[in-house]
Simulated assay, not measured.
Amino acid sequence: MKPYKIPESVLVLIHSADLQVLLIERADKPGYWQSVTGSLDAPDEPLAATAARELFEETGIVADGERIVLRDWQLSNIYEIYPMWRHRYAPGVTQNTEHVFSVEVPRDIAITLSPREHINHAWLPYLEAADRCFSSSNAEVILQLPRRIR
């Protein structure tokens, strides 16, 4: 039996210097667009390590700490886990704590999606990206982008 997911995750907002945001479309729910997200693999996995791992797994982007630098927003959101995904968590777990990171990349960076997880990607102006996200917490983070990077 597959172990239950840990109800603690990261959200990695990928953006360009000119406030374009990269969204990816879920393979298990076509039409559901989001930023990179993922749960900790172990309770003691550092959040920055989770963010770097998920960024690479879902897009092929490597946060090397020099050219591509993850920024920890020191922001956490607690939200209700969508009922359709609760079976992935231990019985009775209904909330997840999500920690926000961002990474600025050039728009021409190569994107390599994990086909098991995502089927498409798009660069959008940040307001349009916020509108396209299915997750309200993801949209709220995108709307904070202009003041977070200036």
Rank of each mutant, 00 (worst) to 15 (best):
W123T: 05
Y82N: 08
E57R: 14
R67G: 08
N96S: 07
Y82P: 00
L23N: 03
A51L: 02
N77E: 12
A27K: 09
R53N: 05
W33T: 01
E58Q: 14
N138K: 13
L70T: 10
R88Y: 12
L127M: 08
E58G: 00
L124N: 06
F134N: 02
L124D: 05
D64V: 07
M1K: 13
L11N: 08
F101P: 00
V62L: 13
V12I: 12
Y89K: 07
A122R: 15
A129N: 09
P125K: 05
V12F: 06
Y79K: 04
P106F: 00
I24E: 05
W123N: 03
D108P: 03
Y126G: 00
E104V: 10
R150F: 04
A17F: 06
E66I: 13
A129R: 12
R88S: 06
I111G: 01
E104Y: 07
L70I: 07
T59C: 04
A52E: 13
S136F: 04
K29M: 04
Y79P: 00
L124E: 08
G38F: 05
E8W: 02
D41K: 11
T59Y: 08
Q144I: 00
G60P: 06
I78L: 02
L40M: 07
E98P: 00
L113E: 05
E57F: 10
T94E: 15
Q34T: 05
P43Q: 08
I14C: 00
V93G: 00
D131A: 13
I149Q: 11
Q20F: 06
I14D: 02
R116I: 09
A52K: 15
E25D: 05
I24M: 07
A63I: 09
Q95R: 14
M84F: 12
Y4R: 10
I81G: 00
Y89G: 01
S136G: 05
P30N: 09
D64W: 07
E117Y: 14
A48P: 10
E104D: 10
K29R: 13
P7K: 04
I61S: 03
L75E: 14
A17D: 14
V21W: 12
A42R: 11
A139Y: 12
